[in-house]
Design a protein around this nucleic acid. Sequence first.
DNA 1: TCCTTTGCTTTACATCGTGTCAAGTTGACA
DNA 2: TGTCAACTTGACACGATGTAAAGCAAAGGA
Lengths: 196, 196
Amino acid sequence: MMSSTFFTTREKIIETAANLLLESNGKGVRMADIARASGVSRQAVYLHFPSRGELMIAAVRHLDDVYGLAEEVKRFREAQTGIEVLETFIEFWGNYIPKVYGVAKALMAVRETDEAAAIAWRDRMESVRSGCRRTIETIEHECLLSPDWTVDEAVDLMWTTLSIENWERLTNDCRWTQQEYISRMKTTLGKLLLKR
Amino acid sequence: MMSSTFFTTREKIIETAANLLLESNGKGVRMADIARASGVSRQAVYLHFPSRGELMIAAVRHLDDVYGLAEEVKRFREAQTGIEVLETFIEFWGNYIPKVYGVAKALMAVRETDEAAAIAWRDRMESVRSGCRRTIETIEHECLLSPDWTVDEAVDLMWTTLSIENWERLTNDCRWTQQEYISRMKTTLGKLLLKR
DNA sequence: TCCTTTGCTTTACATCGTGTCAAGTTGACA
DNA sequence: TGTCAACTTGACACGATGTAAAGCAAAGGA
């Protein structure tokens, strides 16, 4: 494939970092490991990325490209009815999480100490949140929103329910399969958010 | 008060550590800080606790004592009907989280690298899980469990919904008050788990 | 062809936090 | 008086991030 033939060093590092993080679920991957696996010196990495945080950010953005985040979002926007929107969103996001989990986890970890990473993380979470908001507003517009919640409360609830941490807990600790996660999340959010 | 008058050095360190962690939400508290605030040398801390992880574990257990975890659990066991059990559990746990949040967060962080801490954490989470299981079984016994879930699925769902991470997100990011958290969790879990 | 720039390498070092080690101090108790 | 336990002091190892400086090698323009 063309796309894997021509690489700048920078791209090579990003791709390698993403792969290592994915393989190891984001734990125990050092800058030196990434450098070695990329076939460059550790310092070369710092020539391209001022800090670990910046590299994590680049890796996560790279995966957005690879997995066609933009495409997926378009598909989601084409959904019509509230329930369609809800289900499409759960499917899209639920399938997206495992693809980026390792890198996301590393970004989560580094955000404790790295302000830039914290901002990048918040930014990503906001975009998920706006997907939730769009969904809830569609439902509300069709008068299908449960009277137990205001729009804001429903958004908070949906956003929290679909958090990566919850996915992690349900698939790892509770051993739900990916299929089960998605179908049970549909049931959960349906019961929680929809009228009746 | 007697209880604050007589301290072994060990107790002093644990108490100081818990306070510091609580104040700072578990972030940026070093062993040296704990030592200084306890009025002992950094090495004295290592005389009592072989590692940071062990100290975190001691701190969390200490808070269990202070806040009378055993008492609370007893109250919860006295609840009768399924709905009572559910609501009592949400109230108990929902009020407990903020009291231990800082220390719990520190324990969560250290568990990534410290096996003993990881075990202690898993142990605590298992005890919450068994509270959830008891609740669900009571509900099931009264035939009030939603037909959408098996007992196991309902336990997973309840346990995940009540996670500290979710509490953190809802109270910090979504700015729910403690009151709101508890009452909305009752609504959420009621809708999710109960029949009809 | 020479020269410059660009991108990388190598080596060394600073920093920060955890955890270890060894020798010294102090006070209680026997 | 002597001994033991608890604590102090100061030094150090380690692992990871990040910085600094000097050198090298190839591409590209004059």
